[in-house]
Write a protein that binds this DNA or RNA. Structure first.
Lengths: 137, 137
DNA sequence: CCTAATTGCTCTAGTGACTAGAGGTTCAAG
DNA sequence: CTTGAACCTCTAGTCACTAGAGCAATTAGG
């Protein structure tokens, strides 16, 4: 039996966040001590590690809830789990592509500033004048 | 003089978002018609385009406010503007690096699922068992 | 000039995934 | 038995919007 603090130390998930996950239905309401404090079993530790991992991978609370529901039915086809992972992958790739465009543009903006005062600062001019951009966005 | 809808159409910023920016102090409170509707001058159109551009580049409202304050003092050294742009560039690069790690891992997870049912689904096992990961995170 | 459709107004509340704080209770070590 | 850390619940705040209610003003057509 782990206290909420134990769980937090073992998974790296902060204490209020664990309570939040419980509230959101990702963790089931655990047993309580006589004094009403949470006491978690090993299964809950593992589930929290799962949640942590999935969050690190950028899955939303909702996606994680779906996966947890899924994993409760070991007999179902895993196409859904596969789909969630693939969707996540697609969204990550999209975000990367978008950020790389920004990187390019910021690079140009941030390295070309030769002015001495704000009046002729390239950063501010570039932000004001879209036409200085390398490409559309 | 532009109505809020004109401004919205010209900049691509939604009407409620324009009001939100005003509330946040990014746009100054504009003149009003006799019937209390906002009437924007050209300067405000330009400022909104600036804001839009900066938001597209991922700058926070706070950073944008700083840049706007800065641009009001054309005589100041532009080191601050430069710093904001560089910080933004660094944060974008960080985000890209992080996402690329996720991409790698999701790729592995999403493409290796050969199981037919959730019981032996690689996606769910990989999320449960951190040790299946290619690298630390 | 009148009417209807569109656009505008303010205000409140909701989103996601937490985080912070108040004000109180329980637990474990010494 | 005391003390201080850890725990409890509840509310509110974060960021950058978005949605909706319930009205008022504007504009285009007839």
């Amino acid at each position: 039996m782990y206290s909420i603090g134990d769980l937090s130390r073992r998974t790296g998930v902060k204490v209020p966040t664990i309570r939040y996950y419980e509230q959101m239905g990702l963790l089931e309401a655990p047993e309580r001590s006589e004094g009403n404090q949470r006491r978690f079993a090993k299964a809950e530790l593992e589930r929290l590690a799962f949640i942590r991992h999935a969050r690190d991978l950028g899955l939303t609370i909702n996606s994680i809830r779906q996966l947890i529901d899924l994993s409760g039915h070991a007999d179902r086809p895993c196409a859904d789990a596969d789909r969630i992972a693939k969707e996540q992958l697609a969204s990550v790739r999209e975000r990367i592509a978008k950020l790389q465009k920004l990187e390019e543009e910021l690079e140009r903006i941030a390295t070309c500033c030769t002015g001495e005062t704000v009046g002729d600062c390239y950063v501010i001019r570039a932000l004001s004048d879209h036409s200085l951009c390398g490409h559309e966005h």
